[in-house]
Amino acid sequence: MISVCSLSKHYGAQVAVNELSFEVPAGQILGFLGPNGAGKSTTLKMLTGMLEPTGGGATIAGFDLCAQTIEVKRRVGFVPESGAVFESLTGLEYLEMVAALYNIPEAAARERIRQFIAFFDLSFQTLTDKLLGAYSKGMRRKVVITSALLHNPPVVFFDEPLDGLDANAAVGFKTLIQTLAKEGKTIVYSSHILDVVERVCDRVIIIDKGRLLVDGRPDELVAAYGSGTLEKLFTQLTGGAELQRRAEDFAKTFRP
């Protein structure tokens, strides 16, 4: 479903993503991990057609990312880390606008929106009357997730989707994406909450400085590196152990 081949992004001399290659079949949840500045968001933005790659390419749902960008966009859902929305629209206005961009008939869009409202336990009156700027962060995130899934895309990219969601909503969301994967959707899940990734994802990719470090099933990777948990594996591969030692030293400077 997703096939990435030597995907690269350069900003002048700086390399943000360096010849990244991987494949994700339908029905798989891929954990896409990396420390800050590793190139995760840049990769996701390229795979969703927001940024043009400097080199390499990808095929998503059978369409070439560079040559058939609009076709790719039709088949992709994306929850960006920023969770940006047009704050001066109501939730319903926003979702109807998104539905129109995907050519979803109004009645079908309304029905789908109602389903999401029921799932996320939102009030329809809030959605019709309140401007998005007045929503809590969690409610806004629910609207953004709804807007990414509204057109029933076969491929979904999530960048820190749980940010702002309360514990119950987070549990519901995790179940939702696992079920969506079982239904055949391909899901790329980028997050810094590694225990969630470990529990939810079938497979994990860790990148650093734009390069792929490891690729495999979480349990297999943890066993292969003898790290015990995914978090420990992550720190081991991305220099986190050194940071841990520095943090201890730094904390000592706060002694009265």
Binding site: M1, P25, A26, G27, A61, G62, R74, R75, A100, L101, Y102, N103, I104, P105, E106, A108, H151, N152, P154, E183, G184, K185
Partner: peptide, 17 residues
């Protein structure tokens, strides 16, 4: 022609983008 891809939503009387 990709069997694992769910069909896109039907396009009928949709408001123009």
């Amino acid at each position: 022609d990709h069997p694992d891809v769910p069909p896109p939503l039907p396009v009928q009387a949709a408001p123009s983008p």
